[in-house]
Simulated assay, not measured.
Amino acid sequence: MDLLFWQAKKGSDSGFRVDIASESGLFISSIGELKERLSRMRHMVRTTKALADENRIRIVGVLKGRELCVCQLIELLCLAPSTVSKHLSILKNARLIDSRKDGRWMYYRLADPGVPKIIKEALEWTIRSIAETDRFIQDSQRMEEILKIDPEILCSQQTRCGQV
């Protein structure tokens, strides 16, 4: 944003007032509004970064409409548990997925409907964009095979990657 001017002055009752104008005509008239816009920008950057990795996009794709155990995701991606955990952490930090613990099992699902509109739109766009790709079709077929395996067995034999 090219700022044409900014001016801060003491407001009557709410602290400082900031007037910022740009060539696009964007005006921000309070510190609170500026903080809100910066917060939205940071969130957008976090979401974009989270979706900038093929494995994280694959996770989002297979979570559509279901909840999966971390062992099932490890089996699908054929990655080390620590790597899958890091991917899940990044997606969760961006509020794209939610998790729950049930005993010793950790389950993941796409973010609940109560998330901000921008998150819903990002998830919908991602899923629409990959829906017809060969990789997504292969992942969906492979996940159907993985789901046939008892999670107890799957987690105890995690080295089976590709042997389902």
Rank of each mutant, 00 (worst) to 15 (best):
L110H: 03
Q138L: 08
L34G: 06
R58V: 04
P116V: 04
A8R: 11
R46V: 00
N93V: 06
E36Q: 14
M1T: 12
I97C: 02
L68W: 00
S30L: 06
M44C: 09
Y107L: 14
T159A: 12
V18F: 03
D98E: 13
I74P: 05
C155N: 07
E145I: 05
R58G: 05
Q157N: 15
S140L: 13
I90S: 05
R109P: 03
T159Y: 07
D112F: 15
L73E: 00
L51D: 08
G32Y: 05
L154T: 03
I20Y: 05
G162Q: 07
R66D: 09
K64I: 03
I20L: 15
S14T: 14
F5Q: 13
R42Q: 12
K9P: 03
R66G: 06
Q163N: 11
M44E: 15
T133M: 01
K49R: 15
D112N: 13
G25D: 09
R66T: 10
L77A: 08
Q138T: 01
S85W: 00
T83W: 08
R56M: 07
S89E: 13
T83G: 02
L79A: 14
G162K: 02
Q163P: 01
R42I: 04
Q141Y: 10
C161V: 02
S22N: 14
R128A: 08
S24T: 11
L51I: 03
A21C: 11
V62G: 01
L26Q: 12
C69R: 06
G15A: 11
P113C: 01
R135A: 13
R42V: 07
D53H: 15
K148P: 04
I127T: 05
R40W: 11
G32D: 15
W6A: 10
R160A: 13
S129V: 01
G15E: 08
G65W: 10
L68V: 00
A131H: 07
S12G: 07
Y108N: 01
S30K: 01
P116L: 08
G25E: 10
R109A: 09
M143T: 03
C71K: 00
E145L: 12
W6C: 04
D102K: 10
